[in-house]
């Protein structure tokens, strides 16, 4: 029995501000993405951003298990692979919510106190690694949770942005399972921050930059 922690980590109701994020869907919709293309967007994200994010989270979880916790290398590697400033800012904003939760659960744990040393603010995958350490989840569970969260973020934002039958979104998530599993495996295979894959997609970045200049937004990014 794996316990509740891995489920908690993947629960969209976790109060960490994730509902303010659409994982690129709102910018994509503004650029013309239609509802029938959401499954394709899910696959694209699983081959790009989700791999980098899950790998960074796993690296952070490993860093959290060291005697001297230092998130600097993974934070820098991830920031370097997130060239669009609005995406770094959104990631840092989401990371704050996760950091606040980790502080609430284990304020004195080195895995958590080390987050405060990260400048600028720790990106979301880094904080997820710390939270994973606090919850004592496995690398596999963490990688799957990050990948799953990517899917759920997009599909729940789709209910606001391209509304239709909510039951469709569950079918989309299940259909994406092979790509999700592949993304998690790829992430788990990354051993060092230097190996962190740079998977950002040019369109994702272009749309994110356009989104940041837009005034009427529902989502951070």
């Amino acid at each position: 029995m794996p316990g509740l922690a891995p489920l908690l980590l993947g629960d969209g109701r976790l109060p960490v501000g994730a509902y303010t994020y659409s994982a690129g869907l709102e910018p994509a919709v503004a650029a013309g993405l239609t509802r029938d293309r959401i499954p394709a967007l899910l696959r694209a994200r699983l081959r790009t951003a989700a791999v980098t994010e899950a790998a960074a989270a796993v690296l952070a979880l490993r860093a959290a298990g060291q005697d001297l916790v230092d998130y600097g290398p993974v934070q820098r590697a991830l920031a370097a692979r997130t060239p669009a400033a609005p995406l770094r800012e959104a990631s840092a904003a989401l990371g704050r919510g996760v950091h606040r939760l980790a502080r609430r659960l284990a304020p004195d744990r080195p895995a958590v106190t080390a987050l405060s040393a990260v400048r600028p603010r720790p990106l979301r995958p880094v904080t997820l690694g710390a939270l994973g350490a606090v919850l004592n989840v496995s690398e596999e569970d963490l990688a799957h949770a990050v990948v799953y969260d990517e899917l759920q973020t997009i599909t729940s934002a789709a209910l606001k942005l391209l509304p239709g039958d909510p039951l469709d979104t569950v079918a989309w998530v299940l259909a994406a399972e092979p790509d999700a599993t592949a993304a998690a495996h790829e992430a788990l295979a990354v051993r060092t921050p230097a190996e962190l894959p740079a998977r950002t997609a040019p369109l994702t970045e272009e749309w994110a930059l356009q989104h940041a200049r837009r005034e009427r937004r529902l989502f951070l990014a």
Binding site: L61, R62, A64, G65, A111, A133, N136, V137
Partner: peptide
């Protein structure tokens, strides 16, 4: 900082 490597499922 005696946490076990997280891959080993600890209580």
């Amino acid at each position: 900082p005696t946490q076990q490597p997280p891959t080993q499922q600890q209580p």
